[in-house]
Amino acid sequence: MTAVRVVLADDQPLVRAGLRVLMADTPDIEVVGEAGTGAEAVRLAREVRPDVVVMDIRMPGMDGIEATRLIKEDPAGARVLVLTTFDDDEYVYGALRAGAGGFLVKDMALEDILAAVHVVAAGDGLIAPSVTRRLIEEFAARPEPARPSAPRAVEGITGREREVLTLVGRGLANAEIAAELVITVATVKAHVARLFTKLDARDRVQLVIIAYEMGLVAPSR
């Protein structure tokens, strides 16, 4: 198996060192560069062509959101996994709008961070469960007219696709959905791809919103 090539972008050397040591013990991940600023992250992404940039948000000069936007301007550029201490809504939406494939907070388990690198490298989206819950709660609080009507999401999807959509709405990654439904990850990816098409959803976040609007998941109380 080819190792996932990673650039670490964080202005704290100790954080980069910790992630580097963690990934050094993982044979299928290779750290190919480190950056202490957003500008350095953009330069490295263009020079060494990593599979994934693990990106902090708050960095001197160019922040992680702008760096993500510039990296994603290249259609063949690296995928970006935001890993930050700050999960404010402003940062979440900014990172996702900029094209980040994942958004995690640094207090997550180390094995979850490593798994997320593989998820994002494979082209899947991943959002920390705590952030997913907040996204759902925000949309639950919106006035009814602001929400798109649900019927478009009800018609045309199969029972299995509905199950997959429910689990996406709960914030599960493809591998977790596969384990839950006892199917292969490839099958999950096929279902998610069909959901994107049938529901006219741009990304996984929109699927989460649709799952809420259909009543498949509910905001935590």
Score class of each variant (00 low, 15 high):
E180K: 12
V21L: 10
A179H: 01
H118W: 06
M1E: 08
P129T: 15
A121I: 05
D74W: 13
G77K: 10
P148E: 15
A122V: 13
F86R: 04
R147E: 06
L165Y: 02
V117F: 01
A41P: 06
E137T: 12
T132V: 15
I209A: 08
L81N: 04
R202W: 10
L81S: 04
F139K: 03
L96Q: 01
A153W: 08
I157P: 02
E161P: 02
V185E: 04
K72L: 11
L22V: 14
A9G: 03
V192R: 00
A95K: 03
A98V: 11
R204K: 04
G18K: 12
I127K: 00
V117I: 15
V188M: 03
V31G: 00
D74T: 14
L19D: 03
L110Y: 12
G125R: 05
F86I: 08
D63W: 06
M108Y: 00
A9P: 12
S130Q: 15
R49M: 13
E155W: 14
L195N: 02
R20A: 14
L165D: 08
L110R: 11
A109K: 14
R20P: 05
A115I: 13
D11C: 10
K72Y: 07
E90C: 06
I209L: 14
A115T: 14
V82G: 01
R142Q: 13
V131E: 04
A186K: 11
F86E: 03
R79H: 07
P151H: 13
A115D: 12
A100T: 11
P129E: 14
M62K: 09
M214V: 13
V32W: 04
G99A: 10
I113N: 04
D89V: 13
P60W: 14
A98W: 01
V48G: 12
N174M: 07
E34W: 07
Q12D: 08
T2Y: 07
R160D: 05
T187P: 04
R170G: 02
V154H: 06
E34G: 07
M62C: 08
G102P: 02
E176Q: 14
A41H: 00
Q12T: 14
R97C: 13
V120K: 02
R133F: 08
S130H: 13
H191K: 08
V188E: 00
V4P: 01
A179W: 05
V6M: 07
V4W: 06
T68S: 12
G36A: 11
V6C: 02
R16Y: 09
V31K: 00
G102A: 07
E180V: 07
E180L: 03
G38W: 03
R5S: 05
A175I: 12
A218M: 11
G101P: 03
L96P: 01
E213M: 13
I157L: 13
G99C: 06
T184H: 06
V15E: 02
T85R: 10
V31R: 01
G125V: 07
S130V: 15
G38S: 08
E30M: 11
F86Y: 13
L19F: 10
D87P: 04
V4L: 13
V105Y: 00
V54S: 03
K189G: 07
V117G: 04
G94H: 10
A179M: 09
P143R: 11
V80S: 02
A24P: 02
L165Q: 05
T166L: 04
V15L: 05
L70P: 00
F139L: 09
R170P: 01
